[in-house]
Amino acid sequence: MLTEKKFNLIIVLGIFAFSLIGYVINEPYFITLATKIVILGIAGCALNLILGFGGMVSFGHAMFFGVGSYVAAISAFHSMNGETINLIFFDFNGSSQMLFNWFLAVIFSMFFALVVGSISIRTSGVYFIMITLAFAQMTYYFSVGWTKYGGEDGLSTYVRNDLFSINTMLPLNFFIICFACLCVVGFILNWVINSNFGNFLKGCKENEEKMISLGLNPYTLKLTAFVISGAITGLAGALYVDLNRFVSPTSLSWQTSGELIVLVILGGSARLFGPLLGAIVFILLEQFLGEVTENWQFWLGVILVLIVLYFPKGVSGLFIKD
């Protein structure tokens, strides 16, 4: 059994090693898998801030993931075809700079999270699950109908954006960029969870009335956490666009929200980096089973059911002692 710090270190280094092995044995597909794990891991950890620590089960996090994706993709798309977007005060030409597109993705998903959160947090329990789902479905259908940006067929951005003078098309370089994002996000989330704010948030999950009697406002606390979570999920969405050079309404669908929840529960919602382990297990299982059998979804389902029934603390519960 490990302490949580060692556990975090081991899985982060494990992902890095996996990608390096892919580089050494010249198997770029390994690196792509590791990148996918890192990006979905970021989104999962962001979701876990409100789900595991705040007790808010959002069934609509695909919205923030997808909004981040679409904002980044639209910016890159306009920079590529030279068409300007006329905003009221200025013209926007799009951008091929990663940092700028990340910034846009984070700002937009924060805004969405603020609006959706301020309405949703008034409800709780299963109603919260469903109202977040409702908002996500609305953005999903909006993207399907928005034919200017591909509608149902999605939007291709062909090349990855630029970051300084790094060649982002090389898999290892792009992996390292995503990995750096993961580390930064990890430090931020760790700091948030262990701050006073984080303790109050955990308090809201346990007993909201107690927090009120301490003179705190649970609504503001929860909303702040919701916005932080949405912003980071949006960043993950922007990275995902760069990985695939493509975005489609699927990234806004309820299946994506469901998969993010699966990552969190699979890895274990009580730990900051549990969802990262969840992403490793989920993506490697998907990969491994897909090679062994055509009916891999069946076996994935069976394994997931067994994990829920017999490892209620998620896979990370096997490694970390309380």
Binding site: V126, V262, I265, N295, Q297, L300, G301, V302, V305
Partner: peptide, 28 residues
């Protein structure tokens, strides 16, 4: 039956997994 006492999260994961099982079995 084993999920009634669990929280909603475990139910979501388990029944999500059941969708995979049923869909794939039907396709098979």
């Amino acid at each position: 039956r084993k999920l009634y006492e669990r929280d909603h999260l475990d139910q979501v994961l388990a029944t999500f997994a059941l969708i995979l099982i049923f869909s794939e079995a039907t396709r098979y």
